[in-house]
Design a protein around this nucleic acid. Structure first.
Lengths: 204, 204
DNA sequence: CCCGCCATTTGACCCAGGTCAAATAATCAT
DNA sequence: ATGATTATTTGACCTGGGTCAAATGGCGGG
């Protein structure tokens, strides 16, 4: 099934505002030279997804990464015919199918949109170009990966020795404002507990 | 308590052989220029730990990273007075207390040696120097982190929906030859299951 | 506004694996 | 070697939370 996405159709001012969002994100990690800024602006496109759209599926190698300007995406995979949510990504986060994108091979993860979403798209080939020409992009990648690391380790800790109730509490804190926006069943599979159990916990 | 480590006291030939190990590791990811090679050789020291030694403890900020030439280290933390093993690191892996090393702040993880261990030591300040002067070091960091990522995600998957038996099977496969070298109780806490349960599983 | 399809809730039942306790085996230091 | 300390095994018991089933609630499309 082909990737389903609508093309940007925005007024100029809004477009500029958008770009600055991404740029200011970069600026948290590195100093953006004018040259890099220009090259980035050239490589990055804005795309829209409608709620329910498929952003990526397992039949393809993942060749693009998305930085969410607004909206909510979900990365999931199938296990015994059921969808298991791996994680959720909201504003100011990069999303792709990690191993598929990094090693350019097929992988089990699909991505879909839980809300109408507006995102910047960067193709893997363009990212490679940026890495080759701007050492500071390498640094950006290293630094931003670093903070992800902490989250993953925390999650592993939370999965191992905590009760279902504690897992949910940790989730609410880690995904702060987001947990309202995500259907209960998906939260349950993210936490590795049964939907029914989570429903009972909520009705505490 | 001060860091307990013995200084290198090696014959030259062995020393050279050691360094080449690390260099060939780097070569898997980047091309090592002679200048970088020289700088690396200058910054890196060889250290030895005896079985049971503390490599890092929670009272200090982690200011060095170790690349294991031979041996086995364990990263763990205390929960309710018990040691929970976070992960094990063997030959050809970098070890530190991740958040403490990356953000230069205190964290909950300690590291000790499960076997006599010989490792290369790189100080955080020297690593910063290398990042500042050699863009290819940034690339190395990005690429080598990438492969860690896959492992962490796999582990999260394995923790969520699998029985204790499956967790142990996954562990044996992920840590291939290593599982003989690690005490049962530590494996159990790594997997998030009770020691008694793991003992029964093994006696299948 | 109504219908049909999911998502969520509620109830009943059951088992994998946790806890506590005590025996046995392995390891270490003297 | 030998006793002391620590790691592993074994047994008995119990509970958190999984599974299956059925009722109820919500929402998007016509």
């Amino acid at each position: 099934m082909p990737l389903h996405l609508s093309l940007p159709m925005m007024k100029e001012p809004e477009f500029f505002e958008s770009r600055e969002n991404l740029f200011s994100h970069f600026s948290q990690y590195i100093r953006l030279s004018p040259a890099l800024q220009a090259d980035l602006a050239d490589k990055i496109a804005i795309v829209h997804f409608r709620k329910g759209d498929t952003v990526h599926d397992t039949s393809r190698v993942c060749r693009e990464s998305y930085f969410i300007r607004q909206g909510l995406l979900r990365t999931y995979y199938l296990k015994d015919g059921k969808e298991i949510s791996e994680y959720f990504s909201a504003e100011a986060e990069w999303v792709n199918s990690p191993r598929s994108f990094m090693q350019q091979q097929l992988d089990i993860y699909s991505i879909d949109a839980l809300e109408n979403t507006e995102a910047y798209r960067l193709k893997v080939a363009d990212l490679g170009y940026l890495f080759d020409h701007y050492p500071e992009m390498e640094r950006y990648a290293r630094l931003s990966m670093g903070s992800l690391f902490g989250h993953l380790i925390e999650r592993i800790t939370s999965l191992r020795f905590t009760s279902a109730t504690e897992k949910y509490a940790h989730f609410c804190q880690a995904y702060a404002g987001l947990h309202h926006r995500i259907p209960l069943g998906m939260v349950a599979s993210y936490l590795g507990i049964a939907q029914e159990t989570l429903s009972r916990i909520r009705a505490r």
